[in-house]
Design a protein around this nucleic acid. Structure first.
Length: 522
DNA sequence: CGATTTTGACCGGCGC
DNA sequence: GCGCCGGTCAAAATCG
């Protein structure tokens, strides 16, 4: 039996190098001369996957199917050579006898190893039970908290009741232990809804099909140059569809603070920001989207300029981002995203987009309930993520609710490494458990950024629409992008859960149809 | 020559 | 009302 050398899923890490046209440093600034060498490297996260896994891999879109998930233990290979010796053709020699003896010894060693793994398996299974219980407790607490503040928000109904129902049982309806996925779905679901609304609204007159291509986006932005400002500022009449989104954005900004209600959700959603702090020499993290720079300003208190970009993948896409180096440490790049994409995203962009979407929704989940901004602020101010206060925080003090992911506390380890099994520190940390339950994406980011989680298979479905010939964002790598991508991808979290479940072996037989993971819907 | 970036001007919000 | 500041625009400059 030939054992295929494991193939790997490689994550392109893209650093825009000094020649990048987006490079902020082209503008003379006090940051000049502080560039460090950009690191480019393909991260080899999942080296335990082989080709056959294409058929066996966990179907993260339809549920946790812990069938034949590779554990990295290479269990199928240890008896191969002995099998061969047992069916030997009979032509024996001293050398072969010695080899047989050594193989018997190896068998004994491996058996001992299997026994050890079995006990470890049992230990991990117990941990999973405890983790599930903790998760349910936390989620119930969260739902209760949200209900107290929402008071009849229709969004809250079925989802939360389902959560409660599942948690009350300690299991999903099909008997499986509850898998933390509701929060993953939430952001995507809302984001999708908003995208639909946008596309179906008059302001979303251009469909993504019409504007999905970069070429058309460029045409759009080119055409927008004609008189946009005058129209937007002189009169709201005779707006072209192209300009309407801009006006909507302005209207959102100009909306009276007293005007709250049904549209507050959308307003907050649009204003919610996700800020990513990362050590990077690159001028801009490559997140898979296409951006066009539309401005640059010196911000108060920071010698480095702040650059403004807007998404150009669709004409009416309201997403913008600001890129600025940290005032205290110019090696830290701060990228702030705002808005929701209203167009199909390339696989490379899905991760960051879903992160921003989820983060925005996370903010929303604490802000839609009450029309009282004070309540929202209280919620946000208390919402420091359990995983690490320095790594991911919510802020209500800034003009817009902002989630900050700080990757600078534990710099991303760029070393490619083989994938053993789950890292030793995984799952036995109460805070980590709680964090994973509450905020799967952030948790997975924490896992990665702390380099404590080093292995499990990721489904190739991480990029469900990926195309083999799609350029992997050039030759420069970007740890920030990859980290964000991993952190953001619901499949990663689901794969994490699936792998644990699979390794523990406790989920296969208890019904597979119920607790379906829909994390990568949409 | 079209696409993209640069950069000074402009606008609105906000605090005083 | 004034000035500061963040954000945006759009003509000019630059790039490929």
């Amino acid at each position: 039996m030939d054992i295929q050398p494991p193939t790997t899923i490689r994550f392109p890490l893209l650093f825009d190098d000094a020649n990048d046209p987006h490079d902020l440093d082209r503008t003379p600034s006090p940051c000049d001369g502080k560039r460090v060498v950009a690191v480019g490297e393909m991260m080899d996260f999942f080296s335990v996957k082989n080709d056959s896994d294409a058929k066996e891999e966990i179907d993260l879109s339809t549920g946790l199917e812990p069938v034949n998930v590779k554990t990295g233990l290479n269990l199928l290979t240890w008896n191969t050579s002995s099998d061969q010796s047992m069916v030997d053709d009979g032509v024996s020699s001293d050398v072969e006898e010695k080899r047989d003896m050594s193989e018997v010894e190896r068998m004994a060693i491996l058996r001992a190893e299997v026994e050890r793994m079995g006990s470890e398996n049992q230990r991990l299974r117990d941990m999973l039970s405890k983790t599930s219980a903790d998760y349910c407790a936390l989620q119930t607490h969260m739902v209760t908290f949200m209900q107290e503040h929402k008071q009849g928000n229709p969004e809250d109904g079925p989802e939360s009741s389902s959560i409660r129902r599942q948690c009350n049982d300690g299991k999903a309806e099909n008997g499986k232990p509850l898998i933390p996925r509701q929060f993953m779905e939430l952001g995507l679901a809302i984001a999708g809804r908003e995208a639909e609304d946008h596309l179906s609204s008059p302001s979303g007159g251009r469909s993504s099909d019409q504007l999905g291509s970069p070429v058309k986006a460029r045409e759009y932005w080119g055409s927008r140059k004609i008189g946009t400002r005058k129209i937007s500022r002189s009169s709201d009449k005779n707006q072209s569809p192209d300009q309407e989104w801009l006006l909507n954005n302005k209207a959102t900004r100009l909306r009276s603070p007293s005007k709250r209600g049904a549209d507050q959700t959308e307003s907050v959603m649009r204003k919610a920001r996700v800020s990513v702090r990362a050590q990077s020499a690159a001028a801009m993290i490559t997140d898979g989207c296409q951006w066009r720079k539309y401005g640059q300003k010196m911000a108060k208190g920071n010698p480095c300029p702040r650059a403004y970009y807007r998404c150009t993948m669709a004409a009416s896409c309201p997403v913008r981002k600001q890129v600025q180096r940290c005032a205290e440490d110019s090696s830290v790049l701060i990228t702030t995203y705002e808005g929701q994409h209203n167009h199909p995203l390339p696989p490379a962009a899905m991760a960051m987009a879903s992160t921003t979407s989820s983060a925005a929704q996370m903010l929303l989940s604490g802000s839609t309930s009450s029309s009282n901004r004070t309540t929202n602020a209280n919620f946000l101010s208390r919402a420091t993520l359990p995983c690490s206060s320095s790594m991911a925080t919510l802020s209500a003090s800034s003009p817009f609710p902002t989630v900050t992911l700080d990757l600078t506390q534990n710099p991303v380890n760029l070393q490619s490494r083989p994938f053993p099994s789950l890292g030793p520190n995984f799952s036995n940390h109460p805070k980590a458990t709680a964090a994973a339950a509450m905020f799967p994406r952030l948790f997975s980011q924490a896992m990665h950024s702390q380099s404590k989680f080093s292995g499990l298979q990721m489904s190739k479905d991480i990029s469900p629409h990926s195309q083999p010939d799609e350029p992997q964002q050039g030759t420069h790598n970007d740890s920030t992008s990859a980290t964000a991508a991993i952190a953001a991808n619901p499949n990663f979290t689901a794969a994490l859960v699936a792998a644990i479940s699979s390794i523990m072996g406790g989920l296969q037989e208890s019904g597979r149809n119920g607790c379906q993971n829909t994390a990568n819907e949409g």
